[in-house]
Simulated assay, not measured.
Amino acid sequence: MDTTSPTAHPAYEGRCLCGQVSYVATGEPVFQFNCHCDDCRKSTGCAYAPIMFFARAAVKVSGNLTYHAMRGGSGHTIARGFCGGCGAQIVGDADMVGSLLSIRAGTLDDPGLYQPKADVFVSQAAAWDAMDPRLPKYDRWPPRRA
């Protein structure tokens, strides 16, 4: 018997470069965006960090992460989880959204599952950062919904 629902959400699975750390996130992301803040740019070594936030309980990480905590571009503390073997950044644990945990979309086994909805902190973007013109742009965070 096929118990797969046609409306079932995919599992978002991924891993680090060496495979010592993996994760499964279930359900739909709460939000997903490209963050162009100075902190994300420097922590990734790229133009931006592609980030997906899930309910904390929906993310199961296997393997050992090493955390580095510091004040992020938002002004709040974020603890980034890295693989101790290869150094790949896997998760972000931001104080300002304590009920959520973020994964770095570049670590997805199927990167096509990442569907960014906005570019945030574009006021801090590098001049050479080529953003998708179809996405809404916000100098900092998008306005809060009612």
Rank of each mutant, 00 (worst) to 15 (best):
D129Q: 11
G92V: 03
M52S: 14
A8E: 13
C35N: 02
T4P: 05
A69Y: 02
V97G: 04
L100K: 05
G98T: 07
G75C: 06
P133E: 12
A126K: 10
D132A: 04
R144H: 13
D95P: 00
R56T: 13
S62L: 04
P111T: 06
W141M: 14
P116C: 04
G84N: 02
T66C: 00
L65V: 05
D95Y: 00
P6Y: 09
D2L: 08
S5K: 14
P111C: 04
M52A: 13
H76I: 04
T7S: 13
P50V: 06
Q115P: 01
G84R: 05
G19S: 03
G85K: 03
G19A: 00
V24W: 04
P111G: 06
D95F: 00
C40N: 02
H68G: 09
G27S: 08
V21G: 06
V91P: 01
H36C: 03
I51D: 08
V120C: 10
V97A: 12
A94D: 05
G45Y: 01
G87K: 00
R71M: 09
R41H: 08
C35L: 02
S5P: 07
R144I: 03
R15L: 01
V61C: 07
R145A: 14
G98F: 04
A130H: 15
L113A: 08
P136A: 01
Q124D: 14
G84W: 02
I51R: 06
S5I: 07
C83H: 05
A8Y: 05
A127Y: 08
L100I: 03
